[in-house]
Amino acid sequence: MEDKEILEIYRKEGKQEFAFNLLVQKYSERIYWHIRKLTCSHEDSNDILQSSLVKVWEHLPDFREEAKLYTWIYRIATNETLTFLKKKRLNAMLSLSNYDNTLANKLQSDPSFNGDKLQMALHKAILHLPDKQRAVFNLRYFQEMKYEEISEILDTSVGALKASYHHAYNKVKTELKEQFGD
């Protein structure tokens, strides 16, 4: 079902929860994987996803269709995730530890990781990028989103996003080349 149709249902009296359920069914899985690639933890991703969806519910009455509904939902989820990571990094810094290492350890010891060595190396290399750049890389590389859509999600200019992605892509590629050769 198209987003516009879901929104039309949502605007009918007494149909809000039904329409929201349609949205959750449509987007929760995609949003989950976006969050999961940033946090490297199922539990953290679940918490962030649920709080993001609750925020979507709370703010949906104010949604004015100036942006696409799905980029708006992605935006809420991405902001929640980046805020979560920022807090975690601050806590790690206060306890004199490195949150990058924590993320790498989570990825390494994740029992649900079914990839091969190259995939593991790729996801470890992505962890070496700054959080926002990781979000840009994941949205472009894995989800193959358009720069215009990523621009709406991250509130960053298309030019800056292109530069950021290009830089991240080369960085990850160089790291993989060092490990696996050409």
Binding site: R36, H42, D110, S112, M120
Partner: peptide
């Protein structure tokens, strides 16, 4: 397969 999703969920 690099773009495939290697993660799983319960």
């Amino acid at each position: 397969n690099l773009k495939e999703n290697p993660f799983g969920v319960p």
